[in-house]
Design a protein around this nucleic acid. Structure first.
Length: 260
DNA sequence: ATGGTCGACTCTCGA
């Protein structure tokens, strides 16, 4: 049995007290982090080691950054996406577990234009290119028979029921048709969406904006998932919603997966 | 009690 958590922490250093509490309460084997916003120099590797975890980091100053924490040593670390080697942003890392499983932590681009230039489509194009690269990379590993565990903030509202008010997000890069189509191509690989396999019709959110009192008003969005290679059996998968109510927490709640 | 996001960074940007 393995327990895996995926969490967009919105700055690891700001989240260390909350992360240490989560590690102590859940004692996961693996933690995939997104929006770490740290470099090798500012990453709290020693503190995490004291908490019992090895770490692999694809770091970047101020923005993005992904990491994998593991109780067992990690091997064969890969970053960035081999199918997008020229990527300038730290959004992907993978590592092999002692049992041969390939764990991935992915932070899919948001894709919305900068506020000052709403007509700029460069970020949307980058998002679509990135999603396609992730799909091709995962496909290659699955074809080779690898036991893939893909964790991340996908930045996709996959269906209207995954957001408190779909009308308010019309035209938003989180749910534009080409983005949903790219997500559907990824989901069509021989993968199981663990959260949706176990909770097909439940209203689930994993993100509540820091703004507008989104959390107390339950104005949420489902953006975070854990996919596993077909044949791997999720015993349990859920959003750790309580964590969103913690002091000094992230705007995302963690997703937890237990494999049989 | 007169507020109203957060974090990193230099004050503005991204989410």
């Amino acid at each position: 049995m393995q327990k895996i958590i995926s969490w967009n922490v919105a700055s690891l250093r700001a989240r260390m007290p909350a992360l240490k509490r989560l590690l102590a309460e859940e004692r996961p084997d693996i933690v995939c982090l997104q929006e770490v916003k740290a470099t090798d120099e500012t990453f709290p590797a020693f503190e995490l080691r004291l908490a019992g975890y090895h770490a692999a980091l694809a770091g970047q100053k101020s923005y993005n950054g992904v990491a994998i924490l593991s109780r067992a040593p990690l091997a064969d670390i890969v970053a960035p996406l081999p199918t997008f080697a020229e990527d300038a942003e730290a959004r992907f890392i993978q590592a092999a577990l002692p049992g041969g499983e390939i764990v991935m932590s992915a932070y899919i681009p948001n894709g919305n234009p900068p506020e000052r230039d709403p007509a700029d489509t460069a970020r949307l194009a980058y998002k679509l290119k990135w999603m396609d690269a992730l799909t091709r990379h995962a496909e290659g590993l699955l074809r080779a028979g690898k036991k893939v565990i893909l964790c991340g903030d996908f930045n996709v509202i996959a269906r209207d029921a995954d957001v408190y008010n779909p009308k308010a997000f019309e035209g938003n890069a989180l749910m534009l048709p080409p983005v949903r189509e790219a997500f559907a191509r990824l989901a069509a690989l021989p993968l199981t969406n663990a959260l949706r396999a176990l909770h097909p019709d439940e209203r689930l959110y994993s993100f509540w904006d820091f703004q507008m009192g989104a959390w107390p008003r339950d104005l949420g969005i489902l953006l975070d998932y854990i996919f596993v290679a077909r044949g791997m059996e999720p015993a349990e998968c859920r959003v750790l919603k309580d964590v969103r109510g913690w002091d000094k927490t992230s705007d995302h709640a963690p997703v937890l997966l237990v494999l049989k």
